[in-house]
């Protein structure tokens, strides 16, 4: 049994202007110690998917269908207090996008790190010891615990946020755009840190990013999302060496490289669909060069080669 199994998850936002289908039938599995990257552009539902996994979807959104099983237990069926006691931060925690700017300015870093531990039954002394251990694990001196957030640089704050996600030794850490606001050098340092934590602690990581370069730094497997659905899923090698979905192919060709010949960059004409009213059938079809009559119907996720799935009619057996 996989550590995390998500099946046909649907998270919708019930706004006054209509139902936004932010996550619309996503299935994925994550094994223990595995790293999964979720890539997609803004508005494709990747952050909503992450919030759903923690049962933290903000209203007016809610999980309307599907299951999220951690070690076989379906957390969508649990009560809020049960999720709080047993799941959130204990089994699965998150590094939120922009969290480093959400540290409380009037509390010392140490006080903020130990808070979840105190709520989960640690004594203050144990919690402080654990905080010191974690702050060293993320490569900071323990004196940081007595500082206020404004005294730290961006990279240090991001390290603190990473330490906070580890306080209850979760099996899975979700990192939502952990490096977007950082400069390249600091970004590389943070990604190095996450690699080390993954190797040393056998931690499972779900990395959510829009940056194809960042995703390859950490991910063994990659899921490509478009308009609330996973359109392609496979190992990092499969996705980059043999991208199948026209969207994945176009995305890879849209990124300029640092090495090799300079090719003319491609772009995808048009813009992503309105998720209140997505086009029937394949959601990428209106922007797809390869679209043909079959694309009026919704494509299933097909296993094209072992472990490499794609939702595109081009690969269906006809």
């Amino acid at each position: 049994m996989a550590l995390l199994e998500v099946e046909n998850l649907k998270t919708y936002f019930y706004t006054l202007r209509g139902v936004v289908r932010a996550v619309d039938g996503v299935s994925l599995t994550l094994e223990k110690g595995e790293t999964l990257g979720i890539v997609g552009e803004s508005g494709c539902g990747k952050s909503t998917l992450a919030w759903s996994l923690l049962r933290l979807v903000p209203p007016p959104g809610r999980i309307v269908d599907g299951s999220i099983r951690i070690d076989g237990q379906d957390i969508t069926k649990m009560s809020e207090s049960e999720v709080r006691r047993k799941i959130r931060w204990r089994r699965i925690s998150m590094i939120f996008q922009g969290a480093m700017n959400a540290l409380n300015p009037v509390y010392k870093v140490g006080e903020q790190i130990i808070e979840p531990m105190l709520l989960h039954g640690y004594s203050k002394k144990e919690a402080m010891e654990k905080a010191a251990e974690l702050i060293k694990a993320v490569g900071l001196p323990t004196s940081i615990l007595d500082r206020y957030p404004h005294e730290l640089s961006g990279g240090q704050k991001q390290r603190v946020v990473i330490a906070m996600s580890l306080v209850l030794d979760p099996d899975i850490v979700i990192a939502d755009e952990p490096t977007t606001a950082l400069d390249v050098v600091v970004q590389a340092q943070i990604l190095n840190l996450m690699k080390k934590l993954h190797w040393e602690r056998k931690m499972s990581i779900i990395l959510i990013t829009h940056d194809l370069g960042v995703v390859t730094e950490l991910s063994e497997k990659i899921a490509v999302m478009y308009a609330g659905k996973i359109v392609e899923f496979g190992t990092a090698d499969q996705i980059f060496q043999n991208p199948l979905h026209p969207y994945t192919q176009a995305l890879i060709r849209a990124v300029p490289r640092l090495k090799g010949d300079i090719h003319k960059l491609e772009y995808i004409p048009g813009s992503p669909p309105d998720l209140r009213n997505p086009p029937p059938g394949c959601r990428f079809a209106p922007r797809c060069k390869m679209a043909f009559e079959m694309c009026d119907k919704e494509p299933p996720l097909i296993e094209h080669e072992k472990g490499h799935y794609v939702a595109c009619w081009l690969y269906a057996k006809r």
Binding site: V184, A188, N192, K196, G213, T216, E217, A236, F240, R257
Partner: peptide
């Protein structure tokens, strides 16, 4: 420091 998209990246520290 710049991550160029390459699946080999994950195997080593930068």
């Amino acid at each position: 420091a710049i991550p160029d998209p390459d699946p080999e990246n994950r195997k080593k520290l930068r």
